[in-house]
Design a binder for these strands. Structure first.
Length: 853
RNA sequence: GCCCGCGUGGUGGAAUGGUAGACACAGAGGACUUAAAAUCCUUAGGCCGUAUAGGCCGUGCCGGUUCGAGUCCGGCCGCGGGUACCA
């Protein structure tokens, strides 16, 4: 072979690894274990470049850890339940399962050529009955422990299709298929009691030392611990059943600025009033319009209706406040009722302005004047001057004001201080087919009864159709029919399936014993857990990671995970997303009136405008968005792999952009990556041409040790792009070096090792060409000799008043005084001083000198 | 709306509070070649300048802290992610 030929060497080394079972993970108490996990993919159909980036990063870590003496577990599986499979079945017939397993086969075939160091014997899909049956077993254990319960919750209801919609299926407040305005409707649903763990989940964040600060901040805010006051307003001329309205407030210090009380349209009082008053009933209906997302509710126009009722202010019974029903108050949070203080809350301010309610300022800036055109909402940590305060100092922080107000109210019999969390219980019911069936039975006599464990898995039926909207399990002629596990009487199965977040909340634990007949196996979980390095997208910062943290706790309490695994991920790295422009057809919609999106390779650019190649239709380009199948802006890496090889693709996705940052995908550069790898290969192939000994052996040796140090540092800190930059530099050094054969051979063998996590096939090829022993994948990582890293002289830049003017070269450990002397003799410095002496002379040893004049 | 990020040459980006632009892409110029491909070399933030002299400006915008700010603090602007049924 006379040139770099990835299509020949890549399959060759992949077989060599397979034969040597290099990536097979076996328990081995003699070595420290290391569990690397990348968030498993949804089998959407084809891998995209974001997958390549994600899994290559994990592979670099896995291979690096393996060569530093760790027993590595690096598995792969499929997050296989979910809506797209049902959508595909609706769009083109067929069964979601067939679609899913075909996608998995395709994607596995696309991934394997990448040469990832994965133990494929542990592969599973969450839609395998073997997996979801164990999930059902855990559900039953959690039900026994009181961690699961049923209550009412709101869903998006499509009144035309008579079906529940996912938030994604609500577009501009309307159902995606019917186009009808969506309503919020209550349904009895299953919940996990994640709120039992609010405090624990919050406090334990402090211990997550190797998690990104931003993720921890987001989780803290999401859990949202707040201290406030819960108290009741008594109602004037109270209707039957309701003499008081219980409210919760985080700002009791603003009680003297209250100007109205607002209740949710789903509040029991609102419902009672609606029953007698058609106008109120109509308004409550109006409030239920629109989707369930926080965003939709927050952004919707704030509407209220005066109920005609009034309540007494707790401090002054002659002061009456009107009671409004308002569309922005959620029954799910707090008590479903608030008091409004327009002076210090912008939303309340807008509401008060709209409905002509008074605005009474409670405090003003400690220095400066109020602007009464808007609410005054300072940080809670900021000192303010209370002009209508009732507890604590006149000038105090908002936080102090709140605490004094709670104490005062408690002392005066107005409610009590309570701690609340924003975090709500996790609703896991889905009215859909393609998910894990909730293993319970509804019996007329016994009520809700869990299925017997020996009857698990409760399998999804295969004979289902998707020609009608709604849940096929509900329509199935016989699947629901069963007998009560308790009394044996005829009963009906639950038709709700589980949220797919349940599937992904414990897969990391299942990988430690993927084919066991219990959810986990004690010894395996004990050995392999926790995940030492978890890698995934920042888009999962809250939901997936929080649910997983909860689930690990629940599994611990039901005996499926050891105590140490209550926090399952020791270290987390959130890689950036690969983004790409979205190409929206500007001239045409599809038959349902929906926007048409085009794939990147379907369009072309002409004179600054973008057109569809086939039809010439104009395209509206929406720049830089997360790659998403529904927007068709995914880039297929298979062509790159076929043209240049896996190593080029791997090298390319790691180089240039820092792993944590989003990257806008551009295809230019793959060619250059390939050229570079060919150059490195050539250097290795030509090493024999070098003379026996040469000039610069010592220099090359030093450069080699420096490369070991710098590349290792990059890998350890997830700076793969900088590691690669150093490898480019090292390549240039070798290429220019006049050193002899042995020095070059050593440099290139080191190069092979340092490149092996990123371009493992090329590394093996070089290793074997250069006479390396065994597989480079199993060779120990090169460790630099500290003595070779020390530089004798350093270049010190000289700044004058903070601007670089000159530089001097001095021995590395020259004392400060001598450096100062040298600096004062420097021409540029002398010229600037003009005979005078400097105001200040700053010498930072080994770094910089600054002369202040 | 709210929470969390990000913003540096034509482009991707580098830079423990210490020489801004490493390393690369695209570009320009050159060598080799009958030619091309491949390869190698040189060059490059902007402005002024005959300039490898010298000077000024420069990390989204405005201000602050510091001997020194891309980096820390405050306020804006723009973009991205999440917002509990997309995964």
């Amino acid at each position: 072979m006379s040139r770099y030929a990835p299509s020949e060497i890549e399959p060759k080394w992949q077989s060599a690894w397979n034969e040597a079972e290099v990536f097979l993970a076996k328990r081995d108490e003699s070595k420290p274990k290391y569990y690397v996990l990348e968030m498993f993919p949804y089998p959407s159909g084809r891998i995209h470049i974001g997958h390549v980036r994600n899994y290559t990063m994990g592979d670099v870590v896995a291979r690096f850890k393996s060569s530093t003496g760790h027993n590595v577990l690096h598995p792969m599986g499929w997050d296989a339940f979910g809506m797209p499979a049902e959508n595909a079945a609706m769009a083109s017939g067929g069964h979601p399962g067939t679609w899913t397993y075909q996608n998995i086969d395709t994607m596995r075939d696309q991934m394997k050529p990448l040469g990832l160091s994965i133990d494929w014997t542990r592969e599973f899909a969450t839609c395998d009955p073997e997996y979801y049956g164990q999930q059902q077993a855990m559900f039953i254990d959690m039900l026994d422990k009181g961690l699961v319960y049923r209550k009412n919750a709101t869903v998006n209801w499509d009144p035309v299709d008579m079906t529940v919609l996912a938030n994604e299926q609500v577009i501009d407040g309307c159902g995606w298929r019917s186009g009808a305005p969506v309503e919020r409707r209550e349904l009895t649903q299953w919940f996990f009691k994640i709120s039992d763990f609010s405090e624990d989940l919050l406090e334990a964040i402090d211990g997550l030392d190797n998690w990104p600060e931003k993720v921890k901040t987001m989780q803290r805010n999401w859990i949202g611990k707040s201290r406030g006051l819960q108290f009741a307003f008594s109602i004037v001329d109270a209707p039957a059943h309701h003499d008081r309205i219980e409210v919760y407030t985080t700002r009791p210090d603003t009680l003297m600025g209250a100007s109205f009380v607002g209740i949710s349209a789903d509040h029991p009082l609102a419902k009672e009033l609606a029953a007698e008053n058609p106008e109120i009933a109509a308004f409550c209906e109006e409030c239920r319009k629109g989707g369930t997302t926080e965003e939709a509710i927050e952004k919707a126009e704030k509407l209220g209706m005066n109920t005609g009722l009034t309540v007494r202010h707790p401090f002054d019974t002659s002061w009456e406040l009107p009671v409004y029903i308002a569309n922005f108050i959620l029954m799910d949070y707090g008590t479903g009722a608030i008091f409004g203080c327009p002076a210090h809350d912008q939303r309340d301010f807008d509401f008060a302005t709209k409905y002509g309610l008074p605005i009474n300022y409670v405090f003003e800036p400690a220095d400066g004047a109020l602007n009464d055109k808007e609410a005054f909402v300072p940080l809670k940590s900021e000192k303010v001057n209370y002009i209508r305060g009732f507890a604590g100092e006149e000038v105090q922080t908002g936080e102090e004001g709140v605490n004094s107000a709670v104490d005062f109210c408690e002392a005066n019999g107005v409610g009590h201080g309570v701690t609340k969390f924003r975090l709500r219980d996790w609703g896991l019911s889905r009215q859909r087919y393609w998910g894990c069936p909730i293993p319970v039975v509804h019996c007329e006599a016994c009520g809700v009864v869990p299925e017997k464990k020996e009857n698990l898995p409760v399998r999804l039926p295969d004979d289902v159709t998707f020609d009608k909207p709604g849940n096929p399990l509900d329509r199935h002629p016989t699947w629901r029919d069963c007998t009560c596990p308790k009394c044996g009487a005829p009963a009906k199965r639950e038709t709700d399936t589980m949220d797919t977040f349940v599937d992904s909340s414990w897969y990391y634990a299942r990988f430690t014993a993927p084919h066991a007949t219990t959810p986990t196996v004690k010894e395996d979980a004990e050995y392999w857990m926790n995940v030492d390095q978890y890698i995934g997208g920042i888009e999962h910062a809250i939901l997936h990671l929080l649910y997983s943290r909860f689930f690990a706790r629940a599994m611990n309490e039901t005996g499926h995970l050891p105590d140490k695994s209550r926090e399952p991920f020791n270290a987390l790295f959130t890689q950036g997303m690969v983004t790409h422009a979205i190409y929206e057809n500007a001239e045409r919609k599809n038959e349902n009136g929906r926007t048409i999106y085009h794939y990147p390779d379907e369009v072309e650019e002409r004179d600054g405008d973008v057109f569809v190649k086939a039809t010439g239709e104009r395209i509206k380009v929406i720049p830089s968005a997360k790659m998403s199948k529904s927007k068709n802006n995914v880039v297929d890496p298979v062509a790159i792999i076929q043209q240049y090889g896996a190593d080029t693709a791997r090298w390319f996705v790691l180089s240039d952009s820092p792993p944590e940052r989003d990257v806008e995908w551009t295809a230019s550069g793959a060619e250059a990556a390939s050229k570079h790898l060919a150059r490195v290969w050539r250097l290795a192939a030509e090493v024999g041409n070098a003379p026996e000994t040469g000039k610069g052996d010592e220099e090359l040796l030093r450069a080699t040790h420096k490369a070991m140090f710098e590349v290792t540092q990059g890998i350890e800190s997830f700076g793969f792009n900088t590691s690669i930059a150093k490898l480019y530099g090292f390549t240039n050094t070798i290429s220019k070096s006049q050193a002899g054969r042995e020095a070059k051979r050593f440099a290139l063998k080191t190069m092979a090792q340092l490149m092996s996590p990123m371009t493992p096939h090329l590394a093996e090829e070089m290793w074997s060409m250069l006479g390396g022993e065994g597989l480079v994948a199993q060779a120990p990582w090169p460790v630099p000799d500290e003595a070779m890293l020390v530089e004798d002289t350093v270049t010190l830049p000289i700044q004058i008043n903070g601007k670089r003017r000159d530089e001097i070269s001095v021995p590395k450990d020259m004392p400060k005084e001598e450096v100062e002397k040298l600096v004062l003799e420097n021409d540029a410095v002398k010229k600037a001083l003009d005979g005078g002496s400097p105001k200040k002379l700053i010498v930072v040893p080994g770094r910089i000198v600054n002369v202040v004049i």
